[in-house]
Design a protein around this nucleic acid. Structure first.
Lengths: 342, 342
DNA sequence: CACCTCGGGACCTTAATCGTCCCACCGGGG
DNA sequence: CCCCGGTGGGACGATTAAGGTCCCGAGGTG
């Protein structure tokens, strides 16, 4: 019998304490010197509670407090790192990873604790895990293709600012979409290249064009070169969107959105809308990598978290091109129930 | 960094809960179906607290309750067994064992959590550990010599009633002392033989005789044979007494007791009184194994717990004949401070 | 300078825990 | 047989810990 399981059995309240304080330490670590009120907002609990917990953590020497706010001590850093495994074990994430990799036929699943829909910090954890994994597999001279999205933007943020020198080429795999510059593939490619110590290539084109212009744009030399580079990438990192969310971001009209939904579209990637079995329900005439290009890329990494994206993740994984899927517990648990039932 | 240490750091209240519930489970296991009030008395806490904790343990499926009282469930058995290691780690007993074995020059130290002086259940734990160890080393045909005392009486109790078939010979190493039949070496030898599935030999003689009769008694064939058998024992299990306690049990007069104390006697074994360096301060003309006999016995196991016996343990171990010492945390910690300071 | 957020102190409310009874029940022994 | 000593469980105040809500001075920041 496992020790942690036994502990959890005899002291069930351990989980509550561990969870809350672990998340608190995570926030403190990532947000530098930070105040009680901010922590309280992040963890969605009252300021008074945070205060009580901080008193405990301070007494244990895990955090120290100055007029700037609360900061993690070196010892707290240690504890947090050790606790990562503990939390994974508490949530049985290894089991989820193995089981899901098997039933979804994915090479490798990485599941981080939390749920991006519930805790805002969850997305950060997902991003950090992605950054770590990316760091571990990237080699000198690799070509890394990336798409856009809020999740990938956070991945770029999550890298430490200095010290990594990978000399990779980061290439944007998709055209521009919507108004927010922070979540464009181009922006993310540039940020990633900066953090990784490499170079980047941007795709100066809109993502969504009228079909009649598509061919013409794709043949434009500057655009074609970038797309061709993306096709030859060793690693592709892409996000997952729910069909509805992506349709709205693309500005599709209400009628079309309704049609997508009634036809069972749940997930979106690379301009394609999939139903839960992975069938293509609709595709936009979009600029960038296409579905057929993915087969030739050795490592396709799919990232997405927040339980509302469970169906989307399932639909995309059903296509079978994904090699590594990084998601969170919220998605993973919902996937489990979905897969056990049918 | 160790996981349990990290857990303990981030959830310091864990230790309180663990300790209380662990002890509670131990009491429940050993005392069979038992009531709240009894448990409360054992753990020296109020009945209401026990009730609250029992609610938790019941909800976790570790105990179940009938009209007879509370009982350990099979799952509780598992948890308790697993938690043994956890508690050992919490109390850092491995470290104590290694360190004390080194500085006291003993082959092997076994330290159980608790303190027999503080918790009545502590003595039981000591006895169970002794029983386990004994079981693990006894071989077919071994001769086991035992002395008397309350601790060894509990050791005999601690064995499971059935199922062990070791075919050993248990021989009483000391004559009769005092009035209580339950703690006589003879009684213990018989009980142990019964539990181990072996035979026993009793020493039908008083422990303390007038010097002038000693030779005569020791030459009495039946007595001599038993003593000679004890001298050839493979394993000797003996308890430790404080000098004062044993002097009183022997009925020494107050003047002599005072003399012993002023001369520094702190421990007693086999009728000898030792000071803290292990020097013989006084010896009674006693019937049974003598100090010089111990050298020839391959495994001499010394058992004693309760912090008040720390000095006694140290004095006996200083003699250097002991191969394995089984004691409790109360003694061990006091020994540590004693040894670190001089 | 003003302003904003920080940590920490104070105080009251709320909720849980705990102490203390009492009761119905069951089993064993006289 | 009945009685007695043990069991668990319910009930109800009392105590205490935890949480909510302000406020304040300190120390950065524009």
């Amino acid at each position: 019998m496992d020790r942690l399981v036994a502990l959890q059995q005899i002291v069930p309240e351990l989980e509550l304490f561990l969870e809350r304080r672990y998340n608190m330490l995570k926030v403190i670590r990532s947000k530098g010197p930070v105040g009680r009120r901010f922590i309280a907002a992040q963890l969605k609990c009252s300021e008074r509670v945070v205060r009580g917990e901080l008193d405990v953590l301070r007494e244990q020497g895990l955090v120290f407090t100055s007029s700037l706010g609360v900061q993690l001590s070196p010892q707290g850093e240690n504890v947090l790192q050790t606790l990562q495994d503990v939390v994974r074990e508490f949530h049985d994430l290894e089991y989820l990873e193995e089981k899901l990799a098997e039933v979804l036929n994915v090479g490798k699943m990485i599941v981080v604790p939390g749920d991006a829909d519930v805790e805002p910090a969850g997305k950060r954890e997902l991003a950090e895990a992605t950054a770590r994994y990316l760091c571990s597999i990237l080699c000198e001279g690799d070509v890394l293709a990336v798409t856009g999205g809020t999740t990938l933007a956070k991945v770029a943020e999550s890298f430490p600012s200095m010290g990594i020198q990978k000399h990779v080429t980061v290439v944007s795999a998709r055209g521009g979409l919507g108004e927010d510059v922070e979540i464009q593939a181009n922006t993310i490619a540039a940020r990633l290249a900066d953090k990784l110590g490499g170079t980047y290539r941007m795709l100066h084109a809109p993502e969504d064009v009228l079909p009649c212009y598509l061919e013409q744009i794709m043949n434009e030399p500057k655009i074609r070169d970038v797309i061709n580079l993306g096709r030859r990438a060793n690693v592709l990192l892409h996000g997952i969107g729910t069909a509805e969310e992506m349709a709205k971001r693309r500005g599709l009209d209400g009628e079309l959105i309704m049609r997508l939904i009634t036809e069972g579209a749940v997930g979106e990637a690379f301009g394609y809308y999939f139903d839960s079995q992975g069938n293509i329900v609709y595709n936009t005439s979009s600029v960038g990598l296409r579905l057929e290009d993915l087969e030739r890329i050795p490592k396709v990494i799919t990232v997405g978290g927040g339980r509302s994206k469970a169906w989307a993740v399932m639909s995309v994984l059903s296509r079978g091109y994904c090699d590594i899927c990084i998601t969170d517990e919220g998605v993973a648990r919902r996937l489990m129930t979905l897969k056990e039932l049918n």
